Structure formats: structure tokens, C-alpha cells
Simulated scan of single mutants.
Amino acid sequence: MAFDGPAEDQIAIRALIDSYSDAVFRRDAQAWGATWAEDAVWNLASTEVRGRDAIVGLWTQAMAGFPFVAFFAQIGQLAITGDHATGRVYTHEYLELADGSVSRPIGQYLDVYTRTGDGWRFAERHFSILKETQAK
């Protein structure tokens, strides 16, 4: 089964993923950062960042290079055991670059979630691009 664990936790983790996506659209670093655990790890292909503050710093810097970003996420797998969970999330992004060109990466996150005092948060996100198209 692709989805395993208590329904209320599945709903909460789906809300976490949706909150992350919404914060990207709105370029809201505070809301986006709130989706991460304090000691989280973000791995973007070959770049690994540790700690919420460093993760938000990298994201803020990266977002500054895009006049417009759209981010869509679809959860493909979720397994919850107590206060920990793993999941697979597929992404589709529309990235407008400063020179007017557009990149449309389709990616995959392999996630680890943790239940904190503030609810479910990303403990780890490991991203890889599955396919990318570019247009001028």
C-alpha cells in the first residue's frame, strides 16, 4: 500500500506539503521555513544544507534569481510509524529566469518527516530532477 499510517497523520503531512507549496508561490520565507524541523537536512542533488536557518538562507538566495516561480507537489507514497514518517513527493515547477527564459523541472523528493511540538515537519528532503525542459 502506498499510504500507511493513521489518517489524521496522513492529513497533517499532506497539509505540511501543501503549506510548503503555498509558501513557495507566495515567496514567504517565514512560512516556508516553518515547515522544517530546527535540525533538518535539505539535499538538492549534490548540495546538502543542515539546519533550518541555513536552509531558509539558501532558499531565499535561490528565489531571488527567479522573477516568477510556480511550484506544484503530488504525494506518491507515505509511511507513518509513531512520530516519524517517510514519503515520496513529485514536483512540477515553472521557473522564470531573469533573462526571460523558462525552466520546467519535474522532480522527486524523498522525505523524512518528524512530529514536533508544533506538528509534523520536514526532517529531511532529498531532491532529484527526473526531467527538465527549458524554453526561451
Rank of each mutant, 00 (worst) to 15 (best):
P105R: 07
T86V: 07
V69G: 07
S103T: 00
D111P: 07
F72T: 11
S103Y: 03
L78F: 10
Y109S: 03
R88T: 13
V69W: 11
G87K: 02
A62N: 13
I80M: 10
V89R: 02
Q108C: 11
F66P: 06
F72I: 12
D83L: 01
R104P: 02
F72C: 11
Q74A: 15
R88V: 14
Y94P: 00
A64T: 14
Q108W: 00
V89F: 01
A70Y: 13
Y109T: 07
D99W: 07
G87P: 05
L110K: 00
E96F: 01
A85S: 05
H84T: 13
A98S: 09
G82L: 04
M63P: 08
S103K: 03
L95S: 00
E93M: 09
T81Y: 04
G100C: 04
L78M: 11
P67V: 10
Y94K: 02
Q77D: 14
T91A: 04
F66Y: 15
L110F: 00
Q77N: 13
H92M: 03
F68Y: 13
G65R: 15
A62Q: 15
L110E: 01
T91C: 02
E96Y: 01
A73V: 13
P67T: 11
Y94C: 00
Y90T: 04
A62M: 15
G82A: 06
D83Q: 08
S103P: 00
D99A: 04
D111V: 06
V69N: 11
T91H: 03
A79S: 13
I75F: 10
Y90V: 01
H84S: 13
E93R: 01
E93F: 01
D83P: 06
G82H: 10
L97E: 01
E93W: 02
I80A: 09
F71I: 05
G100D: 06
T81F: 04
G100Q: 04
Y94R: 08
P105Y: 08
V89I: 11
F66N: 09
P105W: 11
F71M: 14
D99R: 08
F68W: 12
V89D: 01
H84A: 11
A70M: 12
L110P: 00
I106A: 09
V102A: 04
D99H: 07
V89E: 02
V102S: 02
D111L: 08
A79W: 06
P67S: 12
V89N: 05
Y109R: 06
I75P: 14
F71G: 09
Q77S: 14
R88E: 10
Q108T: 07
G65S: 15
Q74L: 13
V89S: 00
Y109N: 08
Q108L: 12
M63C: 12
T81K: 13
